[in-house]
Amino acid sequence: MLIKDIKDQKYFRSADGCILCELLHRKNEDFDLKAGYSIAHAVVPAYEKTVPHRLKESSEVYYILSGKGIMHIDGEEAEVYPGQAVYIPPGAVQYIENSGDSDLIFLAIADPEWSEADEEISENA
């Protein structure tokens, strides 16, 4: 049985500027995890935003846990808040901005699993 506790995970600042931990990722396990996806716990501090970027091959879903923000995908934008799931297709230029005065916290689920080689920072917002 595999149970991961968020309080035992290490956070880092990713290339897109988000603060995250890889909660569930095959490369971090010492056995053959039979999952083609990855899950990260992500935080965007108050009034910050991530850098525009895209995943070339992976789709992503952001599931908003707390806070509020504005999601940007390929030139479209929409307000996001807790309880919403946002689908981000492969190749879409995306970023999220925190429009509130508390942390914007969400799960980022990538399929196939996230890899550094798949992520590309974009000059276009």
Rank of each mutant, 00 (worst) to 15 (best):
E57F: 04
Y63M: 07
I121R: 05
I109N: 00
E76L: 13
R54S: 09
Y11P: 00
D30Y: 03
V51R: 05
G17H: 03
V86I: 15
D30P: 02
E79P: 10
K56I: 14
L24S: 12
L107P: 01
I105D: 01
D103C: 09
L104Y: 01
I3M: 11
W114V: 03
G100V: 08
D16I: 10
N28A: 05
R54E: 03
F31N: 09
E120W: 02
K4F: 02
L23A: 14
E76Y: 00
E79H: 11
F12W: 07
M71W: 02
D111K: 07
F12D: 02
I6D: 03
H72D: 11
A15T: 05
Y11N: 01
I96E: 00
E48H: 13
E119M: 12
K27F: 11
H53S: 10
L55F: 05
V61F: 03
S14M: 03
D74P: 05
I3R: 12
E76V: 10
Y95P: 08
V93N: 11
I64S: 01
T50G: 14
R13A: 09
I96K: 04
S14A: 15
E119L: 10
D8T: 06
R13C: 10
S102T: 12
E113A: 15
E57A: 14
S115M: 07
A108S: 13
L55G: 00
A108N: 02
D16V: 11
C21S: 07
R26V: 14
R13Y: 06
K10E: 09
D74A: 15
S59K: 09
A117K: 11
D118L: 10
Q94N: 15
L65K: 07
G67V: 04
A46F: 08
N124A: 14
Y81M: 15
E116M: 11
M71S: 14
Q94M: 14
L20A: 01
F31L: 15
E48M: 12
